[in-house]
Amino acid sequence: MLELIVLLIFMIAAGIVAVEIKDLLASVIALGAVGFAVAIGFIMLAAPDLAIVQIVIEVLSVVFFVAVILKTTHVDSTLGRPYKGGDIFTFVVFGMFALAFVYFGVRLLAGLAPMSRELGQVASHYLTQGLAETGAVNRVTSVVLDYRALDTLGEATVLFTAVIGVLAVLRLEGRKK
């Protein structure tokens, strides 16, 4: 488990760099570092399906960010501006929320006790009966496309909506009257 903790510390450090650095291109590259660390973590957590998807999607997401930044500007001009009273209030509220979030998150996850848990009924049914019921060796595929295929249909709808939204927002010429 030590390697996962080291990986998570690296992810948090790269995330702080991505949030605080002045150059937006460097910020996006630090975000890519976090994404690749997530992919390595998926391999450590015995999830090769997720690792493949995460690597490719991370590359594409960095490409999208860079395509936007190259068209506009890559200097964050809002850093270094003096803070006003309202900003300090925002920081205080965020600090209080962070403390409460960590406290209740620890209390909630302590009841979960993930690393020593026996597999639940549903998961062991998928593992033992999945091949006989669906014929797929890869149990993740059998869950995605057979047991919970309606969820996948909803996902396809969300992706379709996102593409339509992008096409509609970036249309330059208005409707002909």
Binding site: L45, A46, A47, D49, L50, V53, Q54, I57, L60, S61, F64, F65, V68, L119, G120, V122, A123, Y126, L127, G130, R139, V140, S142, V143, V144, R148, D151, T152, E155, V158, L159, A162, V163, G165, V166, V169, L170
Partner: peptide
């Protein structure tokens, strides 16, 4: 390992790319 959370995350990763692209536009 449990296949159910992996299947849920598999779709959530691709949705995340779509949401990021919409935000960028």
């Amino acid at each position: 390992s449990d296949p159910l959370p992996q299947a849920l995350v598999l779709t959530a990763i691709v949705i995340g790319l779509g949401v990021t692209a919409f935000m960028l536009s």
